[in-house]
Nucleic acid binder design. Structure first.
Length: 596
RNA sequence: CGGGGCGUAGCGCAGCCUGGUAGCGCACCUGCCUUGGGCGCAGGGGGUCGUAGGUUCAAAUCCUAUCGCCCCGACCA
């Protein structure tokens, strides 16, 4: 049994000034963590206990479907070059040199290492499917670490990888993970949702993120209150209410109109007394892609959307398969539009053909650009748009007739209240933290790294892969985000550092002290994880600390002991039961089994 | 990467503008007291003021550089 007086649990009355989100404040105040550098934290006694329990739950559930490995955190450059990611990862990767000058990096994920093993060892279809996982520290040199343990540069990740003969096999492995993740997060006491996620430019076909709704989150999730549709904003679609096109004027063809100083959409809308839905917005980017050989490639990428819509850059980028977007500079706008910012429009822009999508080589016609039309503009007509001429717009512009584009695609952000694409119900939008991600990888790594097995017919086949991650610390932080009040937080017994804290209100009183010890022993004998607060502190101090540190149940041994009774307190609700000393173990055990 | 803010005792802060003995609250140590929600009294320890340079008789304070940490943005012309 643990005695508080002998432990290092450095609780703080005040939170450090730089903590913003609840989990950060409380993890520091409760003596769970201390910061070493930006995005790098030491986990003290309580945090370590809680994290070990989370890992244990993950391990128990994963062991039902997979085999645990333990892979290196330091990787040689060659392995990452084989997949092309040595250069693609850019500054997000921590790199180092050994004494001989050889390049190494700290692992960000382990696709390469797992695939390397598969490549060397897997020979026959008879060995598949395989699912391998590990729980390891991961390193990412985040451009901006923040929010305590929520966005850090070193963290613990459970990462799993599946190898199957074919897509049908991958479906099975994927579903196994989906189900396993649900069991894991249920056991951790999280309220979460599995959402459709953007599957990136890696040829992945399907992907789900497991999200926890909280204001501290950095992702936005669109969800439908009536059907089960839920998706990351980077993937979400919606049904739009119909909008009215303007009536054509004159001969119905594009017509210049003088719009002095009305560059912004709000201005032009007011000036012409139209709706922003009748205007075409233009956003011009240079897309960048780092090739496997480290060369940085560029492409002009121009998006046209309805005036009241906003670009989702992830969706846009996925169309060309790049890794980064930046907006065009003035000279570039001049080059591709021959017009000034504020008055840019699609008429006269020279679109590259659809077949060239994904082709990053320089075209002969250097003034052409990839032009993406948002799907919401398909079928629209007589719209207002910039004329690529200072202080002029066009009216009567109809997509497809008056200008052409490379491709039409969904590239806009869904807005709260738009109809669910399944059932039409208005969608809700909420901030969320990503705690897990499952992902059909396809052949990217197995192919680039040359992993093959022989099938029944003796033919070489490239296995199809999946990868599946869980952020261990994020389980802890999102539990705290979901379960806290002004005084502290409470964790579900399964992941709390202790199930119950026994608090004799005055240890100078030999009777209270002895009873506290006896109760703590009895609780332990009943299978509870107990901490006895045997510190010579005033009751107020001990109560405050007990409330702070995340332990779901408390037993107060105090005044009522003379009647043979103690108090059992549920931290989440403060609900208090008066219980005879002899009944404490059974009652507490029952409470623990039922959860917070 | 862009913008902003902050570095003074373990934590939270004041002092800086207007240069002149480094302070407050909490925490910590000792003693007494107290014991159901961070109790009281008395005494005490702890800081080369992020670092480096400069200005000055004198720098926490002014100037320059640098490092670190936090926040916002990297979204529409």
């Amino acid at each position: 049994m643990h005695r508080w007086s002998q432990l290092f649990i450095p609780t703080l009355r005040e939170a450090p000034a730089d903590a913003e989100v609840a989990s950060h404040k409380f993890l520091v105040r409760a003596g769970y963590i201390r910061q070493l550098a930006a995005g790098i934290y030491s986990y003290l006694f309580l945090a370590n206990r809680s994290i070990k329990r989370i890992e244990q739950i993950v391990r128990e559930e994963m062991d039902k479907i997979a085999q645990e490995f333990y892979l290196p955190a330091i990787h040689p450059r060659e392995v990452w070059e084989a997949s092309g990611r040595w250069s693609v990862m850019g500054d997000n990767m921590f790199r180092l040199k050994d004494r001989k000058g050889a390049d190494l990096c700290l692992g960000m994920t382990e696709e390469e290492i797992m695939t390397e093993i598969a490549r060397k060892e897997l020979r026959s279809y008879k060995q598949l499917p395989q699912i391998w996982y590990q729980i390891q520290s991961k390193f990412r040199d985040e451009p901006r670490p923040k929010s305590g343990l929520l966005r850090v540069r070193q963290f613990t990740m459970k990462d799993a990888y599946s190898f199957d003969m074919d897509a049908a096999g991958l479906d099975v492995s994927y579903q196994k993970h989906y189900d396993t993740y649900c069991r894991i997060f249920d056991r951790c006491g999280l309220r979460y949702v599995a959402v459709e996620a953007h599957s990136g430019s890696m040829g992945g076909s399907q992907s789900h993120e497991f999200m926890v709704y909280t204001e501290a989150g950095e992702d936005l999730v669109a969800s439908c209150p009536s059907c089960h549709y839920a998706a990351n904003l980077e993937k979400a679609t919606s049904r739009l209410a119909p909008v009215q096109d303007l009536t054509p004027t004159g001969n119905g063809l594009p017509e210049l109109i003088h719009t002095p100083g009305k560059g912004a959409i709000a201005d032009i809308v007011a000036f012409l007394e139209i709706s922003a839905t009748q205007d075409i917005k233009c956003v011009a980017y240079i897309a960048q892609k780092t090739a496997a050989d480290g060369k940085v490639l560029h492409q002009p990428l121009i998006a046209f959307l309805r005036g009241d819509h906003t670009v989702n850059e992830t969706k846009l980028l996925a169309i060309v398969g790049g890794n980064e977007l930046r907006t065009m500079q003035t000279e570039e706008l001049e080059k591709y539009f021959n017009g000034p910012a504020g008055f840019l429009g699609p008429v006269g822009v020279n679109p590259r053909p659809k077949e060239k999508l994904g082709d990053w080589s320089d075209p002969a016609d250097s003034r052409s650009a990839f032009v993406i039309l948002d799907s919401a503009l398909e079928g629209r007509g007589n719209m207002i748009c910039g004329a690529n001429k200072l202080d002029y717009h066009y009216r009567n512009v109809t997509p497809g007739r008056d200008f052409h584009y490379t491709v039409a695609a969904d590239i806009r952000n869904v807005v709260e209240g738009e109809g669910c694409s399944n059932c039409g119900t208005p969608l809700k939008l909420g901030k969320a933290v990503e705690i897990g991600h499952i992902f059909k990888l396809g052949y990217k790594y197995s192919k680039s790294m040359g992993a093959t097995v022989l099938d029944k017919d003796g033919k070489e086949v490239t296995p199809i892969m999946g990868s599946y991650g869980i952020g261990i610390e994020r389980i802890l932080t999102s539990c705290i985000e979901q379960n806290h009040d002004d005084n502290g937080f409470w964790l579900t017994p399964a992941i709390a550092p202790f199930h119950v804290v026994v608090v004799p209100t005055n240890v100078a009183d030999a009777k209270l002290s002895a009873a506290g010890l006896e109760i703590a022993n009895a609780l332990e004998a009943a299978g509870c994880d107990v901490i006895l607060d045997d510190r010579d502190e005033r009751p107020g101090v001990k109560f405050k600390d007990a409330d702070l540190v995340g332990i779901p149940f408390r037993v107060n041994v105090g005044k009522k002991l003379v009647e043979g009774k103690v108090e059992v307190v549920r931290r989440s609700t403060r609900e208090t039961l008066e219980v005879a000393v002899a009944d404490v173990p059974a009652i507490v055990a029952k409470l623990i089994a039922a959860g917070v």
